[in-house]
Simulated scan of single mutants.
Amino acid sequence: MTDLPYRRNVGAALFNRNGRVLIARRADLGPDVATAWQLPQGGLDEGEDARTAVLRELAEEIGTDKAEIVGEVADWLHYDLPPELIGKALRGQYRGQTQKWFALRFTGQDSDIRLDQDPHPEFDAWRWAELAELPQIAVAFRQPIYARLVEEFATFARRG
């Protein structure tokens, strides 16, 4: 496992005007899995700037670019996949991901969020959630990162 590299990735905590954060349900896990929810995130292309990538990922995954970056975690955060997913998840090429996380303010309307823009959507549902919910809705190996995001982005979880 330690021979495999980490996949470089960006993540988006998208906050609405009420200080709630967008979470989306993974289509491949189904509606009955309590930890099927996550924040939008995706791979960083070779030579791509992380700020550019996070806006691209929002457009690809949730169908909107109506957002502005308002903050970021200074460090790159990483997680390891559990042993049963090594060689299966992330195309079998990585042991986990190293992620640059951004806080973004949503500048659009709820109708601007369109999960149906991709022919193979990653998500099948979305909702606004309290930031403090993040660790409880995530799969176990992502919970420490989401707990860190709760601390780092608390200031953005306020109205206005």
Score class of each variant (00 low, 15 high):
121 P>N: 00
133 E>F: 01
110 D>V: 07
119 P>H: 10
129 A>I: 14
72 E>P: 00
129 A>F: 12
12 A>R: 04
35 T>N: 03
18 N>P: 00
22 L>S: 02
31 P>L: 15
12 A>C: 08
96 G>L: 03
59 A>Y: 08
45 D>W: 11
55 L>I: 15
10 V>E: 12
91 R>F: 11
49 D>E: 14
94 Y>V: 02
49 D>Y: 07
121 P>E: 02
49 D>P: 01
98 T>L: 03
11 G>K: 04
101 W>L: 10
83 P>L: 11
44 L>F: 01
66 K>A: 15
124 D>L: 06
109 Q>P: 03
54 V>N: 05
80 D>I: 06
61 E>R: 09
123 F>A: 05
129 A>W: 14
66 K>W: 03
69 I>F: 08
71 G>S: 09
53 A>L: 03
64 T>K: 10
41 Q>Y: 12
77 L>N: 11
106 F>A: 10
110 D>Y: 04
127 R>A: 15
18 N>Y: 04
118 D>M: 11
62 I>L: 13
119 P>K: 12
100 K>L: 02
75 D>V: 12
112 D>Y: 00
87 G>K: 02
128 W>C: 07
136 Q>C: 11
39 L>N: 05
106 F>M: 05
113 I>E: 07
70 V>M: 07
138 A>T: 09
43 G>I: 11
124 D>S: 06
107 T>A: 04
75 D>L: 10
40 P>T: 15
34 A>D: 06
98 T>R: 13
110 D>F: 05
28 D>S: 15
87 G>Y: 01
105 R>Q: 14
89 A>E: 13
56 R>W: 04
46 E>M: 09
13 A>R: 09
30 G>T: 08
92 G>H: 03
107 T>D: 00
40 P>A: 15
114 R>Y: 02
129 A>K: 13
19 G>H: 05
40 P>K: 15
18 N>I: 00
56 R>D: 08
87 G>I: 05
87 G>F: 04
37 W>M: 12
126 W>M: 14
73 V>A: 06
119 P>L: 13
23 I>T: 13
17 R>D: 14
23 I>M: 15
131 L>T: 14
129 A>P: 06
139 V>G: 02
44 L>C: 06
34 A>P: 02
73 V>D: 02
45 D>S: 12
102 F>S: 01
56 R>M: 05
44 L>M: 07
90 L>R: 01
27 A>T: 04
83 P>N: 09
6 Y>L: 13
106 F>P: 00
74 A>Q: 07
61 E>A: 03
21 V>E: 05
70 V>L: 09
94 Y>G: 00
127 R>P: 04
117 Q>M: 12
49 D>I: 12
10 V>I: 09
43 G>Q: 14
137 I>S: 11
117 Q>R: 13
8 R>H: 08
118 D>R: 14
24 A>I: 13
52 T>S: 13
8 R>K: 11
89 A>D: 12
126 W>I: 02
80 D>S: 05
90 L>T: 03
23 I>W: 00
